[in-house]
């Protein structure tokens, strides 16, 4: 199967063959532990605190099928971003394996990178550069034809609501919502087959949030992409995701379709439960409380 699914002639030297039967994403018993506290130099300088062991991802396993929008729902500090980093070759797991279209993220890193793109909660751009300059940088890295990319940047950004004059102006003057739209456009431009979205709508106003969500759906529908989305927005997860994994303290506590998750906790005679109710029943706390707890630790 040729992976660059749309307008492949625009991707020079980057199309790769993958197993047509392989699943989009397989996370198999993955664990990631970080150690915090003084390192070797700190200890040599007399710092006596013990190094703290933080289990960010704790024996997590799941599979995402092609074309799915898969949600990872949980409070802050529960390992969602770590999971995304493990999938995007930015972190190595301590145990277990992550496979993307059958390719191991550690062993086949170079090939995996050609299949993915990631939009993170903080828009990672050279803030002095314009959206056009930033996106052209991305386009060149991903082997997109520069002439095609220039046309496409204007087309995508205009569709996402950016004015023409903003496309050539420095990004430091843009709102966070605008920057996030440019981040989405950058992902669109490279037409990834697996798009990793790490809280892409956090901090956005409702209007921008809806536009970003529409863009995600469009990417899946028109580019046949598979999407993994982390969020702590219950409504967003409910509306956007085909299946959701609820995570707490680095572990998956439930995984199913939004409807099935709600059915799981539905009780006779009560109003239909929301995902908030599902989270409360499964973890014993409200998402907001869990967020506050994470901020304190």
């Amino acid at each position: 199967m040729t992976v660059a699914t749309t307008e492949p002639e625009q991707f020079r030297g980057l199309r790769i063959e993958v197993d047509p039967h392989a699943r989009a994403l397989e996370v198999d018993d993955v664990t990631k532990v970080f150690r915090q506290g003084p390192g070797l130099i700190g200890r040599m300088r007399g710092k006596r605190e013990e190094r703290k062991r933080v289990v960010a991802v704790d024996h997590v396993s799941f599979v995402v099928e092609r074309g799915e929008i898969f949600g990872v729902l949980g409070p802050n500090g529960t390992g969602k971003s770590t999971l995304i980093r493990l999938m995007s070759t930015l972190l190595m797991p301590d145990t277990g394996r992550v496979r993307i279209f059958g390719l191991d993220v550690e062993r086949d890193e170079a090939q995996v990178k050609r299949l993915i793109n990631r939009v993170s909660v903080e828009a990672s751009f050279f803030k002095k550069l314009s959206p056009m300059e930033n996106l052209m940088y991305g386009a060149r890295l991903y082997g997109v034809d520069p002439a095609y990319a220039r046309r496409k940047v204007v087309e995508i950004l205009t569709r996402l609501g950016l004015e023409n004059r903003s496309i050539g102006s420095s990004m430091e003057d843009m709102s966070r919502g605008m920057q996030q739209k440019v981040a989405i456009a950058r992902a669109f431009l490279t037409a990834p087959v697996l798009l990793l979205l790490d809280e892409p709508t956090t901090g956005l106003d409702p209007h921008s949030k809806r536009e970003v969500q529409a863009a995600v759906r469009e990417l899946r529908d028109t580019h046949e992409a598979t999407v993994v989305l982390t969020t702590h927005d219950m409504q967003e997860a409910d509306e956007l995701c085909d299946r959701i994994a609820i995570v707490d303290k680095g572990r998956i506590v439930a995984l199913d379709t939004p409807a099935a998750l709600k059915d799981m906790v539905r009780q006779a005679g009560e109003a239909p439960p929301s995902l908030e109710d599902v989270f409360l029943r499964l973890t014993g706390k409200k998402l907001e409380e869990a967020d506050k707890e994470a901020e304190l630790t």
Binding site: L14, R85, S88, T89, L90, A110, K113, R114, I116, N117, R118, S120, E122, S124, F125, F126, K127, G138, L141, Y142, G143
Partner: peptide, 14 residues
């Protein structure tokens, strides 16, 4: 400084 290190390190270039 710019916050782009992860983007650049994730890109499909050696």
């Amino acid at each position: 400084w710019e916050g782009t290190i992860e983007y650049t390190f994730m890109a499909p270039v050696r």
